[in-house]
Amino acid sequence: MNHILNLFNYWVFVLLLMIGFYAVIARDNLVKKLLGLSIFQAAVFLLFISMGKVSGGTAPIVLDGDWDAIFSNPLPQVLILTAIVVGISTLALGLAIVVRIKEAYGRISDVDAPERRSGPP
């Protein structure tokens, strides 16, 4: 039982990763693909933050000058702050492309279809 609890966060990470990944590859709607991508990325955030947790620790902010308290690991948190920013930047750019695709084609799914004709043999 304890073993399951200990790895629960990682299993949820796997599940969320796969739900997002499924949306990215199986859905044809471009906005849905981007939503899938966001779920996918958020799952990775969970992986990093989970590995940074220390039992009995607190957030890595020193209160009242107590530098010797047990702190959770600050490094994964820093990395994920950066990754969140990267995620929103990708989302914004992706949405801008979707808006242009809508303007150019009049639809936001199945835009790939005309390309298939001239694809490789």
Partner: peptide, 24 residues
């Protein structure tokens, strides 16, 4: 160019995220 770049964005982001998972 637009669907092409969208495809590249998806592939590129998935690739980078896989890399990030591995590094993690």
């Amino acid at each position: 160019a637009l669907p092409a770049v969208f495809k590249y964005l998806i592939a590129g982001t998935v690739g980078a995220t896989f890399y990030l998972i591995g590094v993690g």
